[in-house]
Design a binder for these strands. Structure first.
Lengths: 341, 341
DNA sequence: AAATTATGTACAATCGATTGCACAGAAAAT
DNA sequence: ATTTTCTGTGCAATCGATTGTACATAATTT
């Protein structure tokens, strides 16, 4: 442990001037003479002076830190969003504090409190699946804390957000299946109380209605969106009359389960059964056959929320726009849904 | 903007006592009477008092924050490590500041400086591929800053670390191929100046020598570890005499490229060609055939570095162990390498 | 009863940077 | 020659929590 951090006072003492002058010199305050300014900056360089962020944060009442709360850091989508945010915010001189809720409300509340204590300049959050009551979020606004949502939006709370148009993504996907000639299209849906899954179901229904296809009640399977859930849905589908000839899944993992289940049953994808997923997980490119899916533009989403924050960082709360950006998802057509008749 | 943050002074004023008493009351200092302690704590609860972390950090000289530097947040492995760290550190009351270098040394230096300014209590880092000079890291130790490495270790710097035994992982993988009956085993290697790739190559060589198989020079292909690199290696291999009958790849993406290239050439995996990868990327489970690979125990690694930090957090630098934990990787045998003769 | 110890609280300094205000001396305007 | 305006710098307060020291008063011991 050689030298500890050096402060403006150390520099001031060395140069026989006051700390305030040092501070001003370092910030290029116009009233400081060129001579002292250069002397100070040279000295700062020489001793590798690093300002104490905590001290200046305390004084200025802002920490140049943004808190990010996600359900899980290791989910591809969230990792990409965070990566995008980091690019923008770090080059703007902001830090990112990351918290994960593991989909639990009480974790969410805990993280929120911790971030408030750290006096972050904003909180960017994608709410947990368990979150149905929004009091803990509303309090933030009351306290004048900047909150931004991404992906999993909370409609009740009036603030900026960035998300993709889940309904449209679903619509495009189902529309594509219809265009390919599939007709009896089933839907593996996520839990209905989660708005993104409701939206995907709505997009499915819209495309079906538009094409004049009757959606029969049993064609919608609400399952856990994991491979096992896809398998379950597929098995239920096999017993239906008429049998579904395609599955639009609200998640890629469920779609994967269908690919496997279909193969096990000796059915060919895409010839016998069309399959599409949602999320553009990295593995979708590599399944056999490769999986048609919907890209959620994660990196872009992260960059956009970050930009949204930066653009309005020094506006008072009243002047901030409550812009809700809705990105258009991108349909990625691969082999699992291409029907050559 | 209703109420701003309230402070111990607000509580003190309200109760007609001093701020120091409030502070002590909140920390259950034994000298504070039960009456005042309860009054203070009640008041704190009533006004939802949240301590200003910056103020106490400034005073105490520690921020209860750990800085994490990784090449890319959105890489499966790193996202998992970070997820593991977060679990441990957040429940110990620490925050995580995340920075990514995108494999650039100058980003690394920038992030390091930023974290020092934030007065993080430790820096946990996996160095960038570009990093060959370690001066910027050595400086940290000189300044008494706690540094821990994970996965991509820097041997020259004496400090704690957690990594997996890359050599062993490679050895197990190649040994498995040999046990299955493959003999002409090629290796798709990563850049040789990166120690983890050197270690994997060493493990490959060790297994081959142990089995008494001559490793012919052209069997080692140093390629970029992406699908394209795997394809290139495979094509080169096709021209060799004898032709390799298996490929041990230092990365899963390269292995994936081989799976595809082999299929395109009409060769069957695993019957004609055995393939193994490294990293246990999520997609490896879902390729056709599923890919044998080596799991790097990312989440565990994250939890272990975090624990290592916590265990020695209040020891002086001299007393800290310089423990280098080396985890045993886990070979995940799947279909791409199972030969039934 | 006097001396000692324990208890409960307040004062003031401190962490390091920032900033409104004051003020001396120089330069410019009258 | 005076007054006014600039320039350049320092003083001291401030952000909010923490902590060593001091100092009453109460409780206990001699």
């Amino acid at each position: 442990m050689k030298k500890q951090h050096i402060t403006i006072h150390d520099i001031a003492r060395e140069l026989n001037i006051s700390a305030s002058t040092v501070s001003r010199a370092l910030h290029n305050h116009p009233r400081i003479s060129k001579a002292t300014r250069e002397a100070v900056q040279q000295m700062a360089l020489k001793y590798n002076y690093q300002p104490n962020v905590m001290a200046s944060s305390l004084r200025k009442g802002k920490s140049r830190t943004v808190g990010v709360i996600v359900p899980r850091i290791n989910r591809n989508f969230f990792a990409n969003v965070i990566g995008g945010m980091e690019e923008i915010l770090s080059s703007a001189g902001y830090h990112l504090i990351i918290c994960q809720t593991l989909e639990k409300v009480n974790h969410e509340i805990f993280a929120l409190r911790a971030l408030i204590n750290a006096r972050v300049d904003a909180i960017i959050i994608s709410i947990s699946m368990e979150t149905k009551n929004y009091e803990h979020l509303r309090i933030l606004l009351d306290q004048g804390i900047r909150v931004l949502f991404f992906d999993r939006i909370c409609e009740e709370i009036k603030t900026g957000s960035v998300a993709i148009d889940d309904r449209l993504g679903a619509y495009q996907s189902v529309r594509h299946l219809i265009d390919q000639g599939y007709r009896n299209i089933a839907h593996v849906a996520g839990a209905d109380h989660i708005s993104i899954y409701r939206a995907r179901k709505a997009g499915y229904l819209e495309a079906m209605h538009e094409a004049g296809i009757d959606v029969r009640e049993p064609w919608i399977f609400e399952e856990s969106l994991v491979p096992e859930g896809g398998k379950t849905a597929f098995e239920k589908g096999m017993k239906l009359q008429p049998r579904p000839d395609a599955y639009f899944c609200a998640g890629d993992f469920a779609a994967l389960g269908i690919l496997k289940a279909a193969r096990d049953q000796g059915l060919k994808v895409p010839a016998d059964i069309g399959v599409t997923g949602f999320a553009n997980e990295p593995f979708t490119e590599f399944t056999e056959p490769s999986l048609t899916t919907v890209d959620q533009r994660a990196g872009e989403m992260g960059r956009m929320v970050a930009d949204m924050f930066l653009k309005e960082v020094d506006l008072s709360q009243e002047k901030r726009s409550l812009e809700r950006i809705v990105l258009k998802p991108e349909l990625i057509v691969r082999n699992s849904s291409i029907l050559n008749r």
